[in-house]
Amino acid sequence: MSTTRSVPLVASGHTRPVVHLSFSPLQQDGTYLLVSSCKDGNPMLREWTGDWVGTFIGHKGAVWSTKLSQDSTFAATGSADFTAKVWDTFTGKFLHSFPHNHIVRTVALTPSPNKLVTGGQEKKVRIFDLTKPDADPVFLQDNGANAHEGTVKSVVAVSDTLVATAGEDGYVKWWDIRAPGPSWTLNLGAPVTSMELTSGRPILVITAGNQVSFQQALNHAGPSVTVNLNYQPSSASMHPLLGDRFVAGSTTDPWVHLHDPDGRELEVLKGHHGPVHCVSFCPDGEMYASGSEDGTIRLWQTTPGKRYGLWDGV
């Protein structure tokens, strides 16, 4: 690990707490995009350098989740205005709006991308066919009941047919959307606060209670690792290429915590002025982003001092 002090770049523009961050996959030209979700209701799109590209205007409430398609041409958002929307990232215009009966906390686009997956405070998981946007959604149900017994905090489209969902009921469930009911269930014993698919690796990083759990996304019976921290993480993200470290944020302090794979704390990164709601590694592993109650996004180098992006001139 480098001993050079990490100096973050600050990406401003939001006016309220930043609650979710998501990077696109690495594109053919070696670049990627970053989308941020915020309680100000205006999700923002940024280049890999952190520079602002545009803002998706149209929601009337806090935006809790934003995801990009594999090729970055589409974005999906979930909001407190009881809608999920799909956007054209080139024009910034929304293509479809899907009504719900309560707050939409999480969204995902399948890799194709022809399906939108949503979850939220209704405890339901819906799947919308984007080739037939006017058709009724398909609901994922567990023995005829809702997908979860608590708010659905995260949905992840592992593949075009496999979806993982996580809820405040402490359960993570894997679903083959072609068959009824979940195909596998994991009880983490505490409300799940976040779940993300590691870029380029079939690993789900899940936070629940004081734990960070690393689960095989495709092979449920595959090896998994769970580490205990001395704080409750709000979000965690693993290095996508090396898997030799992970970062975590917490709503109990304004710091970004860097850990080794066994959970040992390597560094505490200070810069935010409020609790950290979300963290995420970029797809090439050269940096990670954090979003905070203070309304800012901060970009941190994995190897401080390396010439990369906007740090090339720092």
Results as ranks from 00 to 15, higher is better:
residue 144 G to V: 11
residue 144 G to M: 03
residue 144 G to A: 09
residue 144 G to N: 06
residue 145 A to H: 15
residue 146 N to I: 09
residue 146 N to C: 15
residue 146 N to T: 15
residue 147 A to Q: 00
residue 147 A to P: 01
residue 147 A to K: 00
residue 148 H to P: 02
residue 148 H to C: 09
residue 149 E to I: 13
residue 149 E to W: 14
residue 150 G to M: 06
residue 150 G to Q: 00
residue 150 G to L: 09
residue 151 T to C: 14
residue 151 T to G: 04
residue 152 V to M: 05
residue 152 V to F: 02
residue 153 K to P: 00
residue 154 S to C: 15
residue 154 S to P: 05
residue 155 V to P: 03
residue 155 V to M: 05
residue 155 V to Y: 02
residue 155 V to G: 06
residue 156 V to Y: 09
residue 156 V to D: 06
residue 156 V to N: 10
residue 157 A to V: 14
residue 158 V to P: 06
residue 159 S to K: 06
residue 159 S to H: 08
residue 160 D to Q: 02
residue 160 D to I: 09
residue 160 D to M: 07
residue 161 T to I: 07
residue 161 T to R: 12
residue 162 L to H: 06
residue 163 V to N: 10
residue 164 A to Q: 09
residue 164 A to H: 15
residue 165 T to C: 04
residue 165 T to M: 02
residue 167 G to P: 01
residue 167 G to S: 05
residue 167 G to H: 02
residue 167 G to I: 03
residue 168 E to Q: 12
residue 168 E to Y: 11
residue 168 E to M: 13
residue 169 D to G: 08
residue 170 G to S: 03
residue 170 G to D: 02
residue 170 G to E: 01
residue 172 V to T: 10
residue 172 V to C: 14
residue 173 K to W: 00
residue 174 W to K: 08
residue 174 W to I: 11
residue 174 W to R: 15
residue 175 W to S: 04
residue 176 D to T: 03
residue 176 D to R: 00
residue 176 D to A: 03
residue 176 D to V: 08
residue 177 I to G: 01
residue 177 I to K: 00
residue 177 I to Q: 00
residue 177 I to V: 14
residue 178 R to L: 07
residue 178 R to H: 07
residue 178 R to N: 12
residue 179 A to G: 02
residue 180 P to T: 08
residue 180 P to I: 14
residue 181 G to L: 11
residue 182 P to M: 08
residue 182 P to H: 03
residue 183 S to T: 14
residue 183 S to E: 12
residue 184 W to T: 12
residue 185 T to N: 00
residue 187 N to V: 03
residue 187 N to C: 05
residue 188 L to H: 08
residue 188 L to E: 05
residue 188 L to S: 05
residue 188 L to A: 07
residue 189 G to T: 01
residue 190 A to I: 00
residue 190 A to Y: 05
residue 190 A to E: 11
residue 191 P to D: 04
residue 191 P to G: 05
residue 191 P to H: 07
residue 194 S to H: 11
residue 194 S to D: 15
residue 194 S to K: 12
residue 194 S to R: 12
residue 196 E to F: 03
residue 196 E to C: 13
residue 196 E to M: 11
residue 197 L to F: 06
residue 198 T to A: 14
residue 198 T to R: 08
residue 199 S to H: 15
residue 200 G to K: 07
